[in-house]
Amino acid sequence: MTIAALDPRTGTALAGLLLSMADDEFVIGFSDSEWTGIAPILEEDVAMSSLAQDELGHARALYELLAGVLGDGRDADALAYDREPEAYRHARLLDHGRGDWATTIARRLLYETADAARLASIGEGWPPLAELVAKIRREERYHVMHVLAWTDRLARAGGDARSRFVAALEALAPDAPTVLAAQEGEAALLEAGILTRPMTSAAASWRAEVAGILGPLGITIALEQAADTARSRSGHSRDFRWLWGELTSVRRSDPGATW
């Protein structure tokens, strides 16, 4: 289905939604893959690599849908790799560098829960996305299991582990709501049934969920309403520019090659 099959307003908004979702999964997937070989314990080396593989797989499937919507000749790889850093539309939460293990777990917790709230907001309006999301949600269950186990472990450990984890949550909290920033053209997406609720209401249920997880552990963080997408998903950090250099290096070394 190309963009021409949808009315232009809905098509443009859908492309924006797909790009946000794909870039989020792409960037967190690559960030997580940085732990391959150097995670604190062997099981986590395997876990982070597997999580990264899942997220990059989701990104690829989303870029493929986007390629169909745009219909401009770019395939999933071109969309993923052939853009300048400024053109990426991932949420600012994912602009933070890998950091230490506590930062990684804090970022995963905030991202996974926000992403779950977003996935729960996708309706049946555009079947290709609805079908993909149904499949992705079944896999994310294991991601949530993993991050909740680590959240519990770090928070209950006390000492350095807990204080680093709490500090990481507090440092990421101002940018965490950017994942659920209002989508451009949200009214059109709601009207078409591609979204079932506005992002503000997804964000409200996400904040309640995070409070329900952290409250019993004696942790409170302030999660404000995010600015609009334009501001929440642009102006990327030095950390991201470095990551972009890494993740595009092979592609740029021989443009157009088949690997």
């Binding site: 395997v46 999580l51 294991y142 993993h146």
Partner: peptide, 13 residues
């Protein structure tokens, strides 16, 4: 369960 994630995406340890 030792680990949710195993050697492939579809398996746990």
């Amino acid at each position: 369960m030792d680990s949710v994630f195993g050697p492939t995406q579809c398996r746990s340890l």
